[in-house]
Design a protein around this nucleic acid. Structure first.
Lengths: 386, 386
DNA sequence: AGACTTTTTTCACTTAATGAAATAAGATGG
DNA sequence: CCATCTTATTTCATTAAGTGAAAAAAGTCT
């Protein structure tokens, strides 16, 4: 429910406005900041000095004078604090310590013997301990811990409503972990976490809406509108992994996104292909595609096209400013991606939005770290679970 | 771009908050209003007396005392002002005069000899004139005119970017009309207008998100998030009419939503069916379905199921609080609707949101009227094109 | 060095909300 | 029927955040 706006919230909103402007545009003088926010110079003076006092902003170099006093650049001090990101996998917790720009400073991995909530919380505690052993430093400079996992997450209460992959049902994982690490903890769906990182410092940085598609262990998506994750009425927005497809007039053929398009599914299809074409010794799909193997190129092309066709439906529905595609399947390269983009261009209602491919290893845990960092740039639910 | 919040905008936001609370909940006492908005009693006293002075609120009957002074109910005075809605059709302009609750007070239709912007503007002027001949009354009590039409509309500038059905391209229809009627004019896509009406006083009244699906002359949709229409980066959100469908593994079969699912397309399929089944004299599809004709029930069932299957993809992506289905095809009744709902239930990822069917004749122009009314409940772009 | 220019800060003022106290209006009970 | 209690609404002094104008700071240019 929307709530009243008093002077306190108004101030917080203006603070967020200025911070996000600096995040998107880099260094700005106080005067530019005033012009771009619409606030008076006087107000900016006060706001900036508060933020400098808190350590989030620093004065940069003065730039060119235009015949008078040089403007003093003000910029975000990304090194001022740390954040920790934890990505839950079925067999391990991947952890990373980053600065406020999600730049990794250290990383570690803790193995999981099982996926019981207590086991996961204990492994997470160990990971945090390894990354910042000094508990004083933790309370001083660590802004919090972000936890990313597959499933439907109630981010406000820090509860995992449903995670099929972990077999969880209403697990208050944020508070379980917060009890152990004594810093604020935020949980979110892993694809949402990736999308937030893209929004803060990635391809969606200067855009207000985005559609994120992940082709990894499963297939999932995330939506950003007005610079905010759209989570849906039951935290299920973007859960396209199980979308059925009636196949035109043939309603009896249902193709499951994850079943055909996930990275494991693609590998499986390659294995089946290799098994049937006798005499050929099995080669890795990625290598085969890179060396131009016709069967591999054909398989990936067909899958890419089909993904593209489904992407068109999503684009036409929400009309995002940009589409960002990531996930482990990106490693299959152009053979998969180009036909996908081609299909989007061919079948879109209008000229489609730009499609950006962005993926690298360890990006999951950086996304998790962005969950905590986002709270600096975003005024809503700035409390986490502590 | 988001902008600063000063005391003026804060006040406007609080005013909006109170108005929307009253719209959703009906009459409330000042005390309840204070409790639900989070504002102090003192602030509510001031706010309410301003709104009463302006004529938008009135005091209602005092309710039951609970042992002390009776609370005085405050409610919206829907009769305080008028709004006019214009729905552009290819051969006519349908117009309705409503109160602030979109309740029709009078209606008229003006024929169009062609769809040139000037012709449309002139016909619209005539319609307004017929509904309120007295120009003094217009400037006093008419809050504005809402114009609904198919196509991509830049609502901020009142420009129709593209309308295939009218052959328009960047037509500043709002200012063309505003010049003639001398009241504020707002234009929007017709499906968006319908959705806004549903949000203000229909099935989405107490919800903050909704997915609206229209099966009419074409097939279109609208999205409401946070009580606001989601228009997309190029005003193209919801334009699913041309969505392609790769049909599972068979990428060569493309079924176009509008081509198979629009009301004319359904009629066409019935006509084809009647033509092939020799000896049978043609019966109207709606009548055939109502009388339980197996072929009609079968045809509508198959179409309904296919629509349902596609709806699942949309629901899984955006996870709306409610789905609202409307459009001229609703007249085909349960034979079409029930299989659609069945399919949604069968193939959804989670328990699907409630699906509400809401349609009646002349609803298009009431939706148009809601475009102007919405500006009272919504603080953004409250200026229109004047 | 003195005259401009441009940026940033200072300060008196305005506005909208707040909490506490006052007032209004009805209920209750002898 | 009057005194007292209860609940609803209004009044008022106070507070917080932003504004515009003027002052101060920090340059450039001749």
């Amino acid at each position: 429910m929307a709530l009243k706006v008093d002077q306190g919230t108004a101030k917080a909103l203006n603070r967020r406005l200025a911070l996000n402007l600096l995040r998107r545009e880099g260094g700005l003088s106080r005067g530019e900041l005033a012009a771009k926010t619409g606030l008076s110079n006087a107000a900016i003076t006060g706001l900036v000095s508060e933020l400098i006092e808190e350590g989030f902003l620093k004065e940069g170099e003065s730039t060119q004078s235009t015949g008078g006093r040089k403007p003093v650049l003000v910029e975000l001090d990304y090194a001022a604090r740390y954040s920790i990101g934890l990505k839950l996998m079925s067999d391990r917790v991947e952890a990373v310590l980053t600065d406020l720009s999600t730049e990794p400073l250290a990383a570690t991995v803790v193995a999981l013997s099982n996926v019981e909530p207590e086991t996961v919380a204990e492994a997470s505690r160990q990971a945090v301990q390894q990354l910042i052993p000094d508990s004083d430093l933790r309370s001083e400079k660590l802004i919090g811990v972000g936890l990313a996992m597959p499933g439907l997450i109630d981010v406000e209460h820090g509860v995992c409503r449903i995670s099929h992959r972990f077999g969880w049902h209403n697990v208050p994982i944020a508070s379980l972990l917060a009890e152990q690490v004594h810093v604020p903890v935020w949980v979110d769906n892993d694809v949402n976490a990736f999308a937030i990182a893209q929004q803060l410092f990635g391809a969606a940085r200067r855009r207000s809406s985005a559609l994120v598609l992940i082709i990894g262990t499963g297939v999932g998506s995330a939506l950003i509108f007005h610079g905010q994750i759209h989570r849906g009425a039951r935290f299920a927005a973007g859960e396209i992994g199980f979308a059925v497809d009636g196949g035109g007039l043939k309603t009896d053929t249902f193709a499951n996104w994850s079943h055909r398009f996930s990275e494991p599914a693609i590998e499986r299809q390659w294995a089946e292909l290799c098994a049937t074409s006798a005499g050929q010794k099995p080669v890795k799909l990625q290598e085969a595609a890179e060396s131009g193997d016709p069967q591999a190129v054909e398989l990936l092309g067909s899958i890419g096209r089909d993904i593209g066709i489904r992407l068109v439906g999503m684009i036409d529905l929400v009309d995002p400013e940009v589409v960002i595609v990531g996930g482990e399947a990106i490693r299959f390269g152009k053979a998969l991606i180009d036909p996908m983009i081609e299909a989007v261009k061919q079948y879109s209602f209008e000229v489609p939005p730009p499609i950006e491919i962005d993926w690298e290893n360890n990006i999951w845990s950086r996304g998790a770290s962005a969950l905590a960092i986002q709270k600096f740039f975003d005024f809503e639910s700035a409390d986490g679970v502590a």
